[in-house]
């Protein structure tokens, strides 16, 4: 089995009284698009800054491409492609100039690949970066970070503020890279888009890692069960499996359940008060909300609670 490209073991980091990351452990397999999801302030950027060596973890260890993040941050950043949430660029340069400028720091081949990428992205020539639109600047940033053919690409909310077409272009290029054997770690809260491209998903909430699973497995394992009751005051039993959240809307009960067995309907056989039962596959967004929403109602399960048992790593 391939060595993981990224490995974190019990990484914690605090800022004053705020715990930004709490004992996070995960491994990113090579050749995948790995999506790191979380709401604002969940700890995604902190985790990425630890991986890129800008921050030191208070506890635990992190490695990227076999190098320790705390000791070899500069070397890691030289090897990978990194686009931060607000990439710094010399805005008085044109796309050609910044490509030429950056080519000096990488091997031969950078220029031609950069040229291909910006041409493919339709980046206008002869225009200074400060006069480009946000999307065009984002494309230039992406081209700069991938033109040297890095083994790993780390993108911190790269599509933030971009229009849907540009976002789609971006994400499709991620898929292309993964197909070539490169690994992409992508942090975002644009769930619906990530759902289209991600191979693996990790969900961070309030500094804790709630989920790490291949996307398909996660979706296959998570269902939304809706039961219509004959009376709004009726009490229905919980469906079998791991109930993540429960909500009621008049005479409808809704559960997000993991590991729903095939014969789950048998629980409601007889006079339980349920007059209609439905099951559907949860979207990633629904899973995300179920995992992360602090106001969600989480009934006690027979099995372990969400906080401790959601982490499933193959």
């Amino acid at each position: 089995m391939n060595q993981p490209v990224i490995s974190l073991q019990n990484v914690s980091r605090s800022f004053r009284n705020t715990k930004a990351l709490d004992a996070v452990s995960l491994e990113v397999p090579a050749g995948t698009v790995f999506a790191l999801l979380g709401e604002n302030g969940a700890g995604k950027t902190t985790l990425i800054r630890i991986l890129t060596g800008f921050l030191k973890a208070d506890e635990g260890s992190a490695t990227v491409l076999g190098e320790s993040c705390s000791k070899s941050g500069t070397a890691i950043r030289r090897k990978i492609g990194y686009v931060s949430d607000n990439p710094a660029m010399y805005e008085w340069m044109t796309a050609e100039q910044i490509g030429w400028f950056t080519s000096a720091f990488y091997e031969d081949g950078f220029s031609s690949r950069y040229y291909e990428l910006v041409t493919g992205f339709d980046v206008p020539g002869g225009v200074k970066l400060k006069n480009m639109s946000k999307g065009q600047r984002a494309k230039v940033a992406l081209a700069l970070s991938t033109a040297h053919n890095p083994e790993l690409l780390i993108l911190d909310e790269p599509t933030s503020g971009l229009d849907p077409m540009v976002r789609r272009q971006f994400l499709e290029s991620m898929v292309d890279l993964a197909a070539l054997g490169r690994t992409v770690l992508l942090s975002s809260h644009q769930i619906s888009e990530v759902e289209r491209v991600a191979d693996w998903v990790a969900i961070l909430a309030q500094g804790q890692l709630k989920v790490v699973q291949p996307l398909e497995v996660l979706k296959n394992e998570t269902s939304i069960v809706t039961a219509t009751m004959d009376d709004s005051s009726a009490t229905l039993p919980l469906p079998p499996g791991e109930v993540l959240t429960e909500s009621q809307n008049a005479r409808q009960m809704r559960w997000v359940v993991r590991g729903l067995p095939e014969d789950w309907r048998s629980v409601y056989a007889g006079d339980t008060g349920a007059i209609e039962l439905k099951e559907e596959t949860a979207s990633l967004e629904e899973i995300f909300v179920a995992v992360c929403d602090p106001r969600a109602n989480r009934p006690a399960n027979d099995s372990d609670s969400v906080d401790s048992t959601m982490l499933k790593v193959n």
Partner: peptide, 13 residues
């Protein structure tokens, strides 16, 4: 606007 012209040859760092 025409796309980016050919990038100049690589120079030293």
């Amino acid at each position: 606007k025409p796309p980016v012209a050919v990038i100049a040859p690589r120079a030293s760092t």
